[in-house]
């Protein structure tokens, strides 16, 4: 499945004195199997862009195409669209509402008009994917779970739609370090099992570790588009935009500035560790 943005512009409250353009002439294509990180300053238009992917927002001009079809053309079914593209908002646990975990996760499939058997199967599958035991959790109220568990249930509610593309807005926001790591590993495993991931993130360290491609937004336009290695090579440009650079990337740049002959653009801990050990051992050999 392929998602294509063609000259997409979105203006909020057009024609009113409060009108503001959140994204402007955005063009890009995402193919199946990518792990795309969407980064940018708050207010750069990331969330607006994300809400265009499954048609929650309609472009003021331009087109959003899925497999070549305009999702806002009259023949395109919204139901199919919602099924294909799942959207997990920031703090998704704030949208839980049913009495039991099972019912809440079943909400999406039920809206699709599936049979009870099919719904049950999907609920079980979704819970398994997020790492919660069906028998233990099905009867629980979503409101009596821990923060991390609530978020998993909310994720399961979207996964039960069996989306081919999952759009996540800051999925790890507000979680403590270990829940955060669990959540990111969960997303990685979804990616590995074939789901296309589009993830909005403020954490460059997460982006560096998981993304296969990075889209940098700046004032509503796409400022950079490339692999993490490409993007973090331009650390100075990112910093100019008020964005962070992964800690490792910053240290690598510091070390190069201090005169160590390290390659440009290292942004992973393992890579820097290996490079430094080589350098140090090399120095030792050289001396002896």
């Amino acid at each position: 499945m392929q998602i294509e943005f063609k000259g997409v512009t979105h203006t909020y409250q057009e024609g009113s004195p409060f009108q503001s353009t959140a994204i402007r002439d955005v063009n890009f294509t995402v193919s199946s199997g990518e792990f795309l990180a969407l980064i940018g300053h708050t207010g750069s238009g990331k969330s607006t862009l994300a809400q265009h992917i499954n048609g929650l927002l309609r472009p003021t001009s331009g087109q959003v195409l899925i497999d070549g079809e305009d999702i806002h053309s009259s023949g395109y079914s919204k139901k199919t669209l919602r099924q294909k593209v799942g959207l997990v908002f920031q703090y998704p646990e704030h949208q839980l509402f049913e009495e039991t975990v099972e019912k809440d996760i079943g909400f999406g499939p039920r809206n699709l008009g599936l049979s009870e058997d099919e719904i049950l199967e999907r609920v079980q599958e979704a819970l398994r994917k997020v790492g919660l035991a069906y028998d233990e959790f099905r009867e629980k109220s979503p409101f009596e779970l821990s923060g991390g568990q609530m978020r998993r249930v909310a994720m399961a509610g979207v996964l039960a739609m069996r989306p081919e593309v999952l759009v996540l807005d800051e999925p790890a926001a507000g979680l403590d370090p270990m829940s955060r790591e669990d959540m990111l590993q969960l997303i990685r495993s979804l990616h590995e099992s074939g789901t296309t991931i589009i993830m909005i993130s403020h954490s460059m360290d997460d982006v560096a570790r998981f993304a296969t491609r990075v889209l940098v937004m700046k004032k509503g336009t796409v400022a950079m588009d490339g692999t993490p290695a490409d993007i973090f090579l331009h650390a100075d440009q990112l910093e100019e935009m008020g964005l962070d650079v992964p800690v490792i990337c910053r240290m690598n740049n510091d070390l190069r500035r201090l005169g160590l002959p390290l390659p440009e653009g290292i942004y992973e801990e393992d890579a820097l560790f290996t490079a430094l050990m080589q350098l140090w051992k090399g120095g030792e050999n050289h001396a002896s």
Binding site: Q51, N54, L56, K79, R82, Q83, G86, L87, F89, P92, H94, Q95, F107, G108, N111, L112, G157, V158, M161
Partner: peptide, 16 residues
């Protein structure tokens, strides 16, 4: 603002 967000999130799960 919150209501707007919840509505969108439920729409994304097929709510009408």
């Amino acid at each position: 603002e919150e209501a707007d967000k919840i509505m969108k999130a439920q729409s994304a799960r097929g709510a009408d």
